[in-house]
Design a protein around this nucleic acid. Structure first.
Lengths: 235, 235
DNA sequence: ACGGATTTGTGCGTATGTATG
DNA sequence: GCATACATACGCACAAATCCG
């Protein structure tokens, strides 16, 4: 700890305590004065450390109120190629997911249309929650043509990502063909799953992913916790 | 100027002078003490402004040496999927381009070979300069099979990127199949276009892009201003 | 090669402004 | 209105890296 600047050591200590979950997301940190006393340094030195953490997106400060644990990830890139795991790992977090439904059923009208299927065709449906460092980031529902991906549901139980399950089904690459983004208020069930209050802002994206031959492989709806995610639209 | 923090006003003033090209890339800014005297503020206030500029990637400071104008963009990702606009926008800059040539002609031997065409086949050729925030980043020459992309030149006049022009021609996705990188010295014409001195280092990349069916759609040469770009090879 | 001057980095102390609760 | 807490700004001092004669 001796080598390097004092502020860097303090920032590292605080970052460790944040990663450890000592302070829950949204919690208020001790005041700058208290932190200065704790580490035995001037308040400016604490501020330098906090500025570093703020630049990394770990904390957010509000004048007159305090310094709070940021709800990460701050940014979620939405481009032609979106991989949840890449977004999360790029933010230095650990991605995980919980599956809440796996089923094969008849496609709804808009699902069949989005996937270019005949009305009444069968589809595989997977629903679940995506988490970063254990905190819910988004709910998702993905719909796949059942005729092409017969073993997909089994694969999804085995591997940790949709990308890998599709790869096992022979789709080694896919791109986002279209995306629509709307803002909604959280319904009770959504608020429960995403650990939000009812009525909290939700970002809803609707996307169609296609393979290299432009054939639709997935029709996906995702509901992001608006307070924890900023969608970044690239191109 | 009165509203807002002093450091923010100073940062804005300096950012404007940088954007104006008052200091060339790589040049040394006045010392913190000099800037403090110029703006009539404490050195800490100048440091706050410089820290802000550094966070935005506009300047780089070296202890004992000084503060220097950053040569942006620092990184230019070269992967299987390269889109100039994505690289530039990811760096927080505004992409643009100037077309210097649009023509249809007989393919040269190496061009036909790269695109898998018969010798003597016709190709569409577009040449131009890519800029980020108005500063030249690279010269490019792209060659396309004329038989497949008859309306491409017209599309290129309409849309701001090659990716979009190809999309209009039915290629909604393409990947970089091969890339070769060499280093050259700027020739007089290149130095003029890229606003470099003659003999300045140039990074020359030669790439073949293919569509989802592995059919070549573009043979491209790009000459990057070596002093302003670092190519990052990924995958 | 060396040493002093220069320049940025770090840290403390103090004072005042401004938003919050 | 009042106390609290972060934001800004000034001043001083020394350390560390670089530069130059």
């Amino acid at each position: 700890m001796a080598r390097g600047a004092i502020w860097a050591a303090i920032a590292g200590t605080l970052a460790g305590e944040l990663a450890q979950g000592l302070y829950p997301a949204g919690a208020k940190l001790p005041t700058e004065a208290e932190l200065a006393a704790r580490f035995g340094v001037n308040r400016h030195t604490v501020r330098h450390a906090l500025a570093d953490l703020a630049a990394k997106g770990l904390v957010v400060s509000r004048r007159g109120a305090g310094v709070f644990v940021a709800s990460r990830p701050t940014d979620y890139a939405i481009g032609r190629r979106v991989r949840f795991n890449e977004n999360v790992t790029a933010a230095g977090q650990v991605p995980s997911r919980e599956l809440t439904r796996l089923e094969t059923r008849v496609a709804a009208g808009h699902e069949a249309a989005a996937l270019g299927l005949e009305p009444g065709a069968l589809v595989q449906v997977v629903e679940g929650v995506s988490l970063a460092d254990g905190q819910p980031i988004a709910m998702f529902r993905s719909v796949f043509p059942a005729a092409r991906f017969s073993g997909l549901l089994d694969a999804l139980r085995e591997v940790p990502s949709i990308t890998m399950a599709l790869a096992a089904a022979g789709v080694d690459d896919y791109v986002r063909a279209s995306t629509r983004v709307t803002a909604k208020a959280a319904k009770p069930v959504q608020a429960l799953r995403l650990r939000l209050r009812e009525g909290a802002p939700i970002l809803r994206t609707e996307a169609v992913n296609v393979d290299g031959a432009a054939v639709p492989v997935e029709y996906g709806l995702t509901w992001f916790a608006g307070e924890r995610v900023t969608l970044t639209l690239s191109v």
